[in-house]
Design a protein around this nucleic acid. Structure first.
Lengths: 115, 115
DNA sequence: CCGAATCCTTCAAGATACTG
DNA sequence: CAGTATCTTGAAGGATTCGG
């Protein structure tokens, strides 16, 4: 268990979820992986403005936390596939819900035009 | 709309949720407020190891994002009450779900004893 | 193609002390 | 009681370059 997660446990279970999913792009990665296995390059293009360095880091974090699996194929050119683990799949409803909530939130902001 | 939120919109709706709720203690604060209005000091004690400076910052962020309301009573001693807004209330199911997920995750880690 | 290595910047979070 | 005022620090994120 990563240190941040371990600290979170002591405070509140919700903080555990934040510790695991809170980094940039992490939920976006999980969301894309709910559609099935993806290669590194696919993920990179799908997520958008993320550098390889950062994406790698997020993926390794998610891997360490048991959310995604990483499969390396010994080929030329190299191929690495990422997929949700069983545990990662349990996040599906939350991802869907938060995705919809975020969209609704953004709409609300636009329609209300708050500064 | 805060800048971070605005950036998030461009990428993915889930990132909006992360931008609004991602800071430390934020979801914990929201969780406690689902139980009803609380004063600053109550919140401080409830959350745990949070300094006033940080708690104030999180509360102001949440207020700016329309999740919590802040009511100042012109009394001596001072009293400030925080409550969920209508928008904040819409987060209730997510908070409950993430709380349970986090608890289950922590249990899993303990039982599996991953380093 | 999938990263690793390097370097850099920024900023959230924490410690501490003080005030209306 | 409910915050500010300063200061410090560590980690996250990003740009760029290089390698298997």
């Amino acid at each position: 268990m990563r240190q941040s997660v371990e600290n979170a446990v002591a405070v509140c279970p919700v903080e555990v979820a934040v510790a695991v999913l809170g980094g940039s792009w992490k939920l976006t990665v999980v969301k894309h992986l709910t559609g099935g296995t993806m290669r590194f390059g696919e993920l990179r293009r799908a997520v958008g403005p993320v550098t390889p360095r950062v994406l790698t880091r997020q993926l390794r974090d998610l891997e360490a936390d048991g959310i995604v699996s990483r499969t390396v194929f010994a080929e030329v050119p190299p191929r690495v596939e990422y997929a949700l683990t069983e545990l990662g799949e349990t996040l599906r409803p939350a991802v869907v819900w938060l995705d919809e909530w975020g969209a609704a939130y953004a709409d609300r902001e636009v329609s209300q035009g708050r500064p």
